[in-house]
Design a protein around this nucleic acid. Structure first.
Lengths: 342, 342
DNA sequence: CTGTTAGCGCGTTCAC
DNA sequence: GTGAACGCGCTAACAG
């Protein structure tokens, strides 16, 4: 294992000074075409790469983004992976890397990343309303981007999906389809620690929209598990008469399977709408109409703001909400244009 | 944002020299109890943490493990997360952190991590038989741990689950249950890029065991999707007569759903065995008998060997296989002790 | 446009 | 048992 080449080696071979090598790399100073070529050739020849530690020490920048991942989350693994991958991609697009921390390290992990100067900024997923890590985050000394909304966002940078808009879209769609009853098959109580505020945000907007459109809203907490789903569906569909529109916020596959067990076909016997990712909606046997929570969009937004901060520019504000959009698929009838316009 | 304290600050407050602070931290030199207390108190008071870059520069050690994650993998997201989490936990247990790289950066990612001295060692998941990254890995300059077996393991460190033992256990179990026919519902052709060698390893051992026990083995490639599963089950179960034992290697949920559609109850109407994780086996409506691929065990083994290497000790050899074990659950009958002993 | 120089914060020799 | 001094590889003033 030969010694790793340094910028001094590059300088020697190119016949320039070490600082010139540095300036060629950073572009912080105009360099003549001839010198640049000399340096670049030398770098190629040595397959030179700058030493990250030395660079961090001198520049006070690590080019690393810390990412706190809630592995134990109840949220589906696919969604998590999508977040993480998209963050990694966005980081690489700006020549940054991603350092992983598990959420169950809690506050200690954040303080280590910041205190040891392991990263320039942090991204934290699955923020709860009264997240115990928030006070630590404020005192951290490195910018932090939160995915989710804590109760008090003062001085923080938060990005989240617009769950209120999502609820409104779903309820409007049900109303446009002529339903006067909507059953929400919702997250189990205590979902994701019970302190995640998108549940009440979604519910509040759903109730407001239902009231405005004059539809009756039935909210059913559906703990996971086959029996729970069957019980909920029995309550919702067992009464006879025309079934209400169904809005499913979680465990979509289980609900679809439950409908199948009852012989109820989405799109034909019942209008099924969901809050889910596009991937999940399209993976079902009958693709499901619904609003996508857009994990990748959220991640991109997070990283855009993160780099805005690192660039020293003004951030877009404390809270950014990623807009919701409804995609119609086969699990529901589609409102006639006239109805949709009304 | 006050300046981050340095070891010089600690030294000044403790009334000792900077090197003493360093030795207190590393333990590489005996320190009197009194001095140690002084230093530790000062560190606490300042909430001092060593600067990672400076430490890496001086010590030639980053205390970071690079992890190459195949986000686009067809392998289920839960398994991936389990690998990653376990690696992160093991790293933390030795005061190391984990730097994430996406597999689709290919060779460039590895060379960056090594060339920039971003990490002390690498872990790569989902190694294929003729993995294009292997040549680069050999020339990397930092130890690399591979999860999976390439064709030529010379000079490498590989850990994988023992898929051959798994196949043997599953076929033995079927034979012990008195079956003379076994149908394997196997990975779709081209699964995970088509160059993953645990498929032929599993198949070879399955065929050998079947031959030895005198049972007929039917191998069915089952691409994902409901129709594919239904077609395979029709081929396997449609002929009438006593059904063969079923061994499922992937897409277990889909297969269980398919059986349900046919009104076939695992454990009663058919013996269903699977190669899967324990979590998945137990998540099914009828818990599934089978061999767990033990992603967490594999990760722990990887990290054990990784730190053995970093400690400069002798590694256990080029290839380590994590042993397979069969767990009986409700999806299959259980062989009588006499039969099991035979 | 380029070279010289002084640190960045820590680990580690060497002298005491 | 402790301290002073140097160097790790790079960046960024400061000269020219």
């Amino acid at each position: 294992m030969a010694r790793v080449p340094t910028s001094k080696d590059v300088a020697r071979i190119a016949g320039v000074s070490q600082s010139t090598v540095s300036y060629v790399m950073s572009g912080k100073r105009p360099i003549s075409a001839r010198t640049r070529r000399l340096v670049e050739d030398a770098m190629q020849q040595l397959t030179y790469q700058p030493h990250a530690g030395a660079r961090a020490l001198a520049s006070q920048r690590t080019n690393v983004v810390g990412l706190v991942v809630p592995f134990r989350s109840e949220v589906n693994a696919h969604g998590l992976m999508a977040f993480v991958e998209e963050i990694a991609l966005a980081a690489r697009a700006r020549d940054h890397d991603v350092l992983l921390v598990t959420a169950d390290e809690g506050t200690a992990g954040l303080q280590r990343l910041a205190g040891r100067s392991l990263c320039d900024a942090l991204v934290m997923m699955e923020i709860s309303t009264h997240d115990e890590r928030i006070p630590a985050v404020r005192a951290l000394g490195v910018p932090a981007l939160l995915i989710g909304l804590p109760a008090d966002t003062t001085g923080l940078h938060c990005v989240d999906f617009d769950f209120e808009a999502a609820a409104t879209l779903l309820l409007e769609e049900a109303a446009d389809l002529g339903h006067d009853r909507v059953a929400v098959l919702a997250w189990p109580p205590g979902f994701a620690g019970g302190d995640i505020n998108y549940v009440p945000r979604f519910r509040g907007a759903a109730e407001a929209t239902a009231a405005r459109r004059g539809v009756a809203l039935d909210w059913h907490d559906v703990p996971r598990g086959r029996e729970d789903v069957d019980r909920a569906l029995e309550r919702v569909l067992g009464a006879g008469g025309p079934p209400p529109a169904l809005v499913c916020t979680s465990f979509l596959s289980e609900v679809v399977a439950g409908l199948q067990r009852r012989g109820v076909r989405p799109g034909t016997d019942v209008d099924l709408l969901a809050l889910t990712t596009d991937a999940e909606a399209e993976a079902e046997e009958v693709p499901v109409t619904g609003v996508s929570t857009q994990p990748r969009d959220v991640s991109r937004r997070v990283m855009r703001t993160l780099f805005t901060l690192l660039d020293g520019a003004a951030p877009p504000g404390e809270v950014e909400l990623v807009p919701a959009a409804l995609t119609r698929r086969a699990s529901s009838r589609h409102p006639r244009p006239a109805a949709a316009a009304g």
